[in-house]
Design a protein around this nucleic acid. Sequence first.
DNA 1: CCGATTGTTCGACAATCATAAAACAATATT
DNA 2: AATATTGTTTTATGATTGTCGAACAATCGG
Lengths: 109, 109
Amino acid sequence: MKRYPHPTADQFTLTAVLHALSDPVRLNYVQCLANLGCEQPCGAIATPVAKSTMSHHLRVLREAGIIRIRTEGTQSLTSLRWEELEARFPGVMSAVLKAVDSTDAVGKK
Amino acid sequence: MKRYPHPTADQFTLTAVLHALSDPVRLNYVQCLANLGCEQPCGAIATPVAKSTMSHHLRVLREAGIIRIRTEGTQSLTSLRWEELEARFPGVMSAVLKAVDSTDAVGKK
DNA sequence: CCGATTGTTCGACAATCATAAAACAATATT
DNA sequence: AATATTGTTTTATGATTGTCGAACAATCGG
């Protein structure tokens, strides 16, 4: 069973969060995760990149505090750290995700 | 008199805005600009980097649509494109700037 | 006209990043 | 045990990035 280092909420930095969300592939993944609303295996969300690349992106999101990853069997389950993010940086995630919904900012980099 | 290309609001992309704000030097500049509330010459806001570096950062901010730059005499006057940004991505800028105020996310990269 | 002020542009450089193939690890299934 | 599933790690590569100094451009003040 793999263990991943997750930062605590007080270790989040705004610049790391913004940087993590500034990549189209990552932003799209986060948006899907938010829309689905519950824990998802990495593979459940379609992406245009190789699995090794996706593994890298998920690490960036995890290290920024945006997602939590735990393993169950062979799969890695990812979930948004919504409450912690909203508590630390109120309104940032919700505004960003609303903006994603209302624009085509994702997909074509 | 120099002319700078500025994107129109419909050309803004969320990822470019987030990327532009994800650098500590740029985020700090934007925050100062917002706090001062009015047009400022580049040099009026202290930064830890060389002027050529700052010129680069201001171009990134301009191309993302975050600031407007116009020249008057020898100085370049910068201002936030607040209304346009809020209209395009409601809540994003205001949430980010509030988060900056409430954390030490800026300065130490 | 001359020098000072204020930024921009142009290399150059080191660091980071997004990407993917290949090998690996861990668990599940048959 | 053998194979399939799922994702990570390693290694490599090309692109982007942040940084600076030096040269340049434009204006302002004498």
